[in-house]
């Protein structure tokens, strides 16, 4: 427990910063919602998008056009981008979880204490998973608050909150999938690599694979390589959860975390 407390205290500031920046973006977008609802923007957007080829529309998830006058759909569309930022953050947290101790050389302090390697892995896993949970939770709270503020009077409050809850459960799934991939990398990467650039690289590679997977039906299997596409907020709002991706996410998490324990227990630490 002492390691978890220490880790959380050490990283809580950057975690809160991420949460506040993302929340700020959501507040900004939601502040635009009343003008969306009251103008003819929906019609304008539809007109413009009709000019795009169908394949391109599918690739960017625009084939089933968002109803910007519907607060839940507008919110889900906005959160899609926040979900990307959270995905990158989850990867950074995961990759840094074990590796940062070697990068900074602090492992020489930690592992000189009476603590076994599995405990280091477990406590790093829990502390960083907690930081991720907390960040998303804060963003979720801000989202609920700002959505209540801008909600049309006739929109049911309970439905709105339950809808946001569902979207954030999806974000949790995507975030923890990326986090576990990052955590696995943390156990195998050498300390000399740049963790932020690797995180961004991996995320956008998977994102592009996800985009490609939507271009043709035959490529749909590629979607399994893109955790971001497992639970797209817009899809979740419209169609609910897709069981196959839920299972895929759980399998990735279990395998990567189990592998991290195994590898970290056998590796030579680099100081």
């Amino acid at each position: 427990m002492n390691i978890i407390k220490f880790e959380v205290r050490r990283s809580i500031k950057s975690s809160l910063l991420w949460a506040l920046v993302c929340s700020g973006i959501i507040i900004f977008f939601m502040s635009l919602f009343p003008s969306m609802e009251n103008s003819d923007i929906q019609e304008i957007v539809f007109t413009k998008l009709d000019a795009f080829p169908e394949g391109l529309m599918e690739a960017f998830g625009l084939d089933n056009m968002v109803d910007f006058t519907n607060i839940m759909q507008y919110l889900a569309y906005t959160i899609q981008y926040i979900s990307m930022a959270i995905g990158v953050y989850a990867l950074i947290l995961g990759i840094n979880a074990l590796l940062s101790e070697e990068v900074e050389g602090t492992i020489e302090f930690l592992y000189a204490q009476p603590v076994c390697r599995n405990k280091i892995v477990l406590t790093k896993l829990l502390s960083n998973a907690y930081l991720l949970f907390q960040s998303i939770f804060i963003i979720g709270l801000f989202t609920i608050a700002v959505s209540i503020f801008f909600k049309p009077e006739d929109y049911d409050l309970i439905n709105l909150i339950m809808g946001i809850k569902e979207v954030f459960l999806g974000i949790y799934l995507v975030a923890y999938t990326y986090f576990s991939i990052g955590f696995f990398l943390s156990s195998i990467l050498k300390p000399k690599v740049g963790t932020t650039s690797i995180s961004i690289g991996i995320f956008f590679f998977s994102y592009i694979v996800g985009v490609v997977s939507r271009l043709k039906e035959e490529l749909e299997l590629l979607r399994f390589l893109s955790p971001f596409d497992y639970v797209l907020p817009m899809d979740l709002v419209r169609y609910g959860w897709e069981r196959k991706f839920l299972v895929a996410a759980i399998i990735i998490m279990v395998l990567t975390i189990a592998a991290s324990f195994f590898i970290y227990d056998k590796k030579d630490m680099e100081i």
Partner: peptide, 14 residues
């Protein structure tokens, strides 16, 4: 490590 203290040559603590 319960009964061993260690001082590294280069101190890279947090």
């Amino acid at each position: 490590k319960e009964f061993t203290g260690y001082v590294p040559s280069e101190i890279k603590y947090y």
